[in-house]
């Protein structure tokens, strides 16, 4: 029980989060059994932040351990997760590849990483398999473990927890009360600040305003972006008014749909940078673009910078 509690506390207090592994402090049985207990505790804590943090910390611990194992052992563990993987040990150019992994198992995990070396197009892919180093596979397995643990923790489950264990839950909750505080979502500044548009959105905005042709997905991107930064549906409809093929009824329907006022009631978010690149809507990045992955993040940062500048000017 104590080790289970420690596992969670370690996850919440270490940075970057990682659960420790110390075979001298705890014997094998305790290490093994404390894990499912910790899962129950996390579920009882019923907090999404703790759940994600704990899964990540356990996954990072697993990663550290995987790296110490030999290729055959790693392949065996990966096989337990249903991966189609082979040990190959093959030298191509100056790189040594240790594994060949089926591209679907690769994509399901690599999709979470955003560095360009994880894009499939930058990998050696042959006959349905991606060629990988040991380090790559350990990293992908970390992601698989993280997803696996997250999926094991069901926050909505009504668990009947014995008094005895409830004490631990309360204790962890107290220790971590600072960490548990949900970080509030950043409020989007009210007025729409055109100067803070990222290049892609500015391009679409100018195109629509001057009545130039914009593809369907381009229109969707612009509309969802403007609605997300707080422009009301009416103003967005008016923006489209300058188009030659403007049809108020259809435009209104589509825009209200994107705003979540119709149909499925889903409020759509504009696509991320990566998606815009796929569809050829990224017009090339500026300095700030290189540091963000989403046009909305760009907008938030830029408005904040502009506000600061504005304040500085007033105080002068």
């Amino acid at each position: 029980m104590d080790r289970a509690e420690r596992r969670i506390v370690e996850a919440l207090t270490s940075n970057p989060p990682e659960v420790s592994y110390n075979p001298y402090a705890y014997n094998e049985d305790i290490e093994l059994l404390s894990f499912p207990v910790a899962i129950v505790l996390v579920a009882a804590l019923a907090n999404d932040y703790i759940k994600r943090r704990y899964a990540l910390a356990e996954a990072r611990r697993a990663y550290s351990l995987f790296k110490l194992e030999n290729e055959e052992k790693i392949a065996e563990i990966a096989g337990k997760f249903g991966w189609k993987i082979r040990v190959i040990n093959r030298q191509i150019g100056f790189i040594r590849f240790s594994f060949a992994l089926h591209f679907i198992d690769y994509l399901k995990n690599a999709i979470a990483f955003h560095e360009k070396e994880w894009k499939l197009v930058n990998r050696m892919v042959h006959n349905g398999e991606v060629y990988l180093s040991k380090h790559d596979v350990a990293r992908l397995l970390q992601e698989e473990v993280r997803r696996y643990i997250e999926s094991k923790i069901d926050l909505s489950a009504e668990v009947k927890i014995p008094e005895e264990i409830l004490k631990y839950v309360e204790k962890i909750r107290q220790i971590c009360s600072e960490k548990i505080k949900e970080t509030p979502l950043e409020p989007i500044p009210s007025g729409v600040v055109n100067d803070a548009f990222p290049p892609c959105i500015r391009e679409l905005y100018e195109a629509i305003k001057s009545g130039r042709h914009v593809s369907h997905i381009g229109r969707f991107t612009l509309t969802a972006f403007l609605l997300n930064i707080g422009m009301d549906a009416e103003s967005v409809i008016n923006l489209f008014r300058s188009l030659a093929d403007f049809n108020e009824r259809i435009t209104r329907y589509q825009i209200e749909h994107i705003a979540g006022e119709r149909g499925s009631r889903t409020k759509y978010t504009s696509p991320k940078c990566d998606t815009l690149r796929t569809h050829g809507l990224c017009v090339g990045s500026d300095e700030l673009c290189r540091r963000v992955k989403h046009p909305l993040t760009y907008y938030l940062r830029r408005t904040r910078a502009l506000e600061k500048r504005e304040k500085a000017r007033v105080e002068e």
């Binding site: 994509l107 894009k119 499939l120 197009v121 998606t275």
Partner: peptide
């Protein structure tokens, strides 16, 4: 998202 990676490839 995964189909998009295949498209990018």
């Amino acid at each position: 998202d995964i189909r998009k990676e295949i498209v990018d490839y």
